[in-house]
């Protein structure tokens, strides 16, 4: 089947089977491998991307649901996003595998609410697991961006 949608500002058409989902399409068909597979059940947040600006777990999204809509992935942030810089400044990642999802989740928060409270940050980020235990540095990075504004 052919699916048309927008990824990181580019309109494109992808041939994929009927049961295709967004995560494996981004990763294997489009080689946008910054979006990670972690649990396949919306329990870890490693595959977080934006669908029309809203953070979603790509592992749960059938490709058919994406037709005609816009997806933004970690690659679409361009590397110079204030949160990406803050992530480097705070030396957040360890193994790094969950961090694309963490950053996409945080970007969505600050786009909705430029100055969330700590409680709001924790509530918003609580669905994203990090096994290396970098949570305090993630918080530090997010709060540093809020303070710069």
């Amino acid at each position: 089947m052919k699916y048309s949608f927008n990824v990181n500002g580019q309109n494109l058409e992808v041939d994929a089977p009927e049961n295709a989902n967004l995560l494996w399409t981004l990763r294997e068909r489009l080689q946008l491998t910054g979006t990670k597979y972690g649990c396949g059940a919306a329990l870890c947040g490693a595959c977080t991307v934006h669908l029309d600006g809203t953070p979603v777990r790509a592992c749960m999204i059938p490709l058919s649901m994406v037709a005609g809509r816009s997806v933004r992935t970690i690659e679409g942030l361009g590397g110079e996003h204030p949160l990406q810089k803050a992530w480097i400044e705070a030396q957040v990642p360890q193994c790094g595998y969950c961090q694309s999802g963490q950053i996409m989740q945080a970007v969505a928060l600050l786009e909705q609410n430029p100055s969330p409270s700590r409680e709001q940050i924790l509530a918003h980020m609580n669905g994203n697991l990090c096994r290396c235990g970098t949570y305090n540095r993630i918080l530090k990075a997010i709060e540093s961006v809020i303070q710069q504004r």
């Binding site: 992935t73 480097i88 030396q91 957040v92 790094g96």
Partner: peptide, 8 residues
């Protein structure tokens, strides 16, 4: 390794 782990 950190920059490459913030841009995917």
């Amino acid at each position: 390794d950190i920059p490459a782990k913030t841009d995917g």
